[in-house]
């Protein structure tokens, strides 16, 4: 019976992908990004941290496809090497906030009452912060390390998952199948865990994909202003920050290529999220 459902979902996905090639491209792009992240040490043409002042600040050429920086390091190698770190930060941050946020939100959305109001208020406080400022303060407070970028990004993502799970559970708590489950002998907690969460998960998966892009931007932004990852570690935000010093003298490649990498990564995850939403939305099913 499950294979039947899986088969139907796969067929449905294939049908959607045919009708929406952009999602297929995005999925392929996300896959390529993950592969690049996994195999980056074997993919880079040059050592990403080896400097050679004789070729400093060279524009893109056959030898250096993306040009070189002020220390003569190959920019393409640095961008490729940075993929792993950027994706790892974003992925772990999003998964962390998803795991915590989904449970908190689901319980609050189902229980309602005072607990829900208190959590709702805390979430409001968190969101009352301009979130990027909050992330800045958190990294500064916890210490300028990569783990803390993950924690800070996870915390600023948390309110969204709590809200989302809360709203999704809230609209379903009055659904007949929830009451039927209780008439069938389930307690409240079991109803949340066995009936509501599984039904909310697909929508949350969409949220994960959309948030990945946002998390990448946040982490890069933090290192751009000098928090978290430190030079000379290759990281997209740092690469842009280093290139910023030379933009007024026309060394465009130092900003454009790391920026392009950032943009493509975020675009892939966003388009994938939009596509997933179409696939999972049961109203769209035939």
């Amino acid at each position: 019976m499950t294979t039947l459902a899986a088969g139907a979902t796969l067929r449905h996905a294939a049908w959607i992908l045919r009708g929406n090639p952009l999602t297929a491209v995005a999925a392929a792009g996300a896959l390529i990004l993950c592969l690049v992240a996994a195999f980056s040490p074997w993919l880079v043409p040059y050592d990403p941290v080896a400097s050679d002042v004789s070729v400093a600040l060279q524009p893109p050429s056959a030898a250096h496809w993306a040009g070189t920086d002020q220390l003569g390091r190959d920019l393409l190698s640095r961008i490729v090497a940075a993929t792993r770190l950027d994706l790892a930060i974003a992925l772990s941050a999003v998964l962390l906030s998803f795991a915590v946020g989904a449970v908190i939100g689901a319980v609050c959305g189902y229980a309602g009452g005072r607990l829900d109001r208190v959590v709702g208020r805390v979430v409001d406080v968190l969101m009352a912060f301009p979130l990027f400022v909050l992330a800045m303060a958190l990294v500064a407070a916890l210490g300028n390390r990569v783990e803390n970028i993950v924690v800070a990004t996870a915390i600023i993502n948390l309110p969204f998952y709590v809200r989302f799970a809360r709203a999704e559970v809230n609209v379903r708590r009055e659904a007949g199948y929830v009451e039927a489950a209780r008439a069938g002998g389930e307690g409240h907690l079991a109803v949340v865990l066995k009936f509501l969460l599984p039904n909310v998960l697909p929508a949350m998966a969409v949220q994960i994909s959309l948030n990945l892009g946002w998390a990448i931007l946040n982490a890069a932004g933090l290192s751009f202003i000098g928090l978290g990852v430190r030079p000379p570690t290759p990281e997209w935000g740092i690469l842009v920050a280093e290139g910023a010093r030379f933009i007024t003298t026309g060394k465009w490649w130092l900003v454009a290529f790391p920026g392009l990498a950032l943009m493509l990564a975020v675009l892939c995850f966003n388009l994938l999220g939009d596509g997933l939403r179409d696939i999972l939305d049961p109203r769209m099913r035939t």
């Binding site: 892009g213 932004g221 751009f224 935000g237 920050a241 790391p258 920026g259 950032l262």
Partner: peptide, 10 residues
């Protein structure tokens, strides 16, 4: 998708 710090610099 385009971070402000990249679009600003460009």
């Amino acid at each position: 998708c385009v971070p402000t710090f990249v679009s600003g610099l460009l």
